[in-house]
Design a protein around this nucleic acid. Structure first.
Lengths: 203, 203, 203, 203
DNA sequence: GATGAATGAGAATTCATTCAT
DNA sequence: GATGAATGAATTCTCATTCAT
């Protein structure tokens, strides 16, 4: 069996195991067995537990970013762009719950070599959102009426809310990606103030 | 030295150690040394690493919930109540970073026995927020114009955004609890739609 | 059982195992079993394979040097002093063949941290011999007629010959310490030139 | 490339690797890479690590013995023969430090199958020296005044001193082969007794 | 003749946990 | 109530060795 294929099998097994047990608790024995290979082969291809974990993080992060970028409709209105991006995000995390848990729950916990990888991906997301908020303000003919300095905080809040909802929606029998994206747009775009007065946002 | 005091010392040491090293990496030796007692005594009082970790989670979760409940101004307007609760939340997490890290970062990564404890606390928070949103809608004389079924999702989003901001604000030189609460209220209450048109929320 | 006693048992087992198998081939399992304790206890007391090996080297080196110093008759004539020192040396190495093998055969092979320990002991020996050669020259009323610069080489040669003979005499049924010392004195003091003409050295 | 050539390349690589890392620490991977061939080929030609090591020892031992035999001037006087043999010995060990380290430092530490190989070579050397000492005695017209039984011990001492000096002279900036041989002849032939009275040996 | 792919066996080290005192 | 002494069970990682091609 060619090396590239085996390597993907190993990464699949590792993502799953790391996502469920955490970095420390996952054992290389477990991963090798789940991948259907012997432990030395895992070491031959991926060198160490640390490198294996890093490889998992990179693969999953790249896949998630690609999914979101592909989902955004570049020529639509600002709110519509945000919505499509969120939809892509929730669709991907729902389809790859282990990958998402790896990134969101496990990798950020394990300190420096790993947290940095996730932080880089998150920064990409935050920047994407920031640009969309700025575009929305411009579209509204308004030079960011609110203090521009708050935008980072808002983007953090939106990304944080999305991450949190992804985890929640990922549970058994949770809402669909489309529903989750709509809920978050209601929350984030219309605001609770409007919502409680009966004014919702809709795509 | 009375047993109860010794026990709290041990929990203090354990919270700090678990928060910084994670459940697996923290060693009972480390904890016992930091607490200034011998390892067998830790076992005598707290039985096992698992029970010790659980005790830490429960203590910190109870403290956080209590802080939030105490902060809410029960007779104020709906948005004001939400704001005061958030303020209490951010103030507590900033004041007890190890406790917050234990709950938010470490406990959730260790799988079943522990994640459940945190989930229970989170559910309490979500329910508290849900009641406040419902109260706000009622105040506005409106039977929740949006599908009432969305409220749980909104509460999840708000709690998730708060958790995310707590981590972000907890960094060195981050914003104060009051500033963080204001940012989140802007985001959550006024909504990005209004904000981008220059209309902010203020307490 | 008190710690100090256990520690000596472990060192005994380690000296024997390292001497017979070499540093790399000796396994901590073997040593622990031979010492009659569990492996973690060996680590608790001696920290690592490296530190254990170092402790063995130090103990055996100190014992050997002490034996030689104790054997030298300080007020005798120069040749007699040399002879008594050699006798002490051969007696000790014959009585502790594992310790000698550890120092002479194994420790010097294993590169820096260890070779240095043995080199230090050897330097002590060489210096002792050098002083005795110088004393002999003075006694003979001769300011080291031979090029003084050759003394280090001569001392090296004598110590090297002694080390080599120790190994040879250590074999099953080899000569006694006294015989070996006499042989070496004949060789070193009288010289082959005289010996082959029938003139031997005797104590 | 013919098999014999490849085999020598492998042995070259193996001698170098074994000499520098020791038998256990040297890995077949390293050796194969240094030899520029794949690992299975090493196994095809040399069967196992053990056989490979043995082959190295035999090759280097044979080369050393041949060098010494070639250096001896068969028709010269007894002391001159000894001197020329020692010169050959020191010249060869200086020219082939890896080979010498393999024989003197590494092979002897690895216990039975290997130490025996070196011992056989050493026995050959000792026998050669023994014959030369006997010849010297005969030349001097003297039936070995000293107990003939001491000759083996003397030969051991001479060979041991030579080995020891070879290591010492092998260091960076050490004496030349000629100088080393002279030092040893002074020591061994004239004896410390004469030397300390100003009477040296010279070729 | 030569190699990419694969593994069984064993190495050092760590840690939660328990007694006898 | 408190502890020094001790260990069973993992864990990460390495390496000599073998086939199918």
């Amino acid at each position: 069996m060619p090396r590239a294929v085996r390597e993907q099998q190993m990464l699949d097994a590792a993502v799953r195991t790391f996502a469920r047990c955490g970095y420390r608790s996952a054992s290389m024995d477990e991963i090798a067995e789940l991948a259907g290979v012997s432990k030395p082969l895992v070491y031959l291809y991926l060198n160490s537990k640390e490198e294996l974990f890093t490889a998992c993080i990179r693969r999953e992060a790249a896949a998630l970013v690609a999914a979101v970028r592909a989902a955004v409709e570049p020529d639509a209105a600002a709110d519509r762009q945000l919505w499509s991006g969120l939809h892509g995000f929730f669709a991907h995390t729902a389809a790859h719950p282990d990958g998402w848990a790896l990134l969101h729950v496990q990798a950020r916990t394990q300190g420096e070599p790993f947290a940095r990888e996730v932080a880089a991906m998150r920064a990409e997301m935050v920047e994407l959102v920031t640009r969309q908020i700025a575009a929305a303000a411009q579209e509204a003919g308004c030079a960011l009426g609110m203090a521009g300095q708050e935008v980072p905080g808002l983007a953090q809040a939106l990304v944080g809310a999305a991450e949190s909802l992804a985890e929640w929606a990922g549970a058994e029998g949770g809402p669909s990606a489309k529903e989750t994206a709509a809920t978050l747009m209601n929350f984030a775009w219309a605001g609770l103030g409007n919502l409680t007065q009966g004014q919702a946002w809709s795509p």
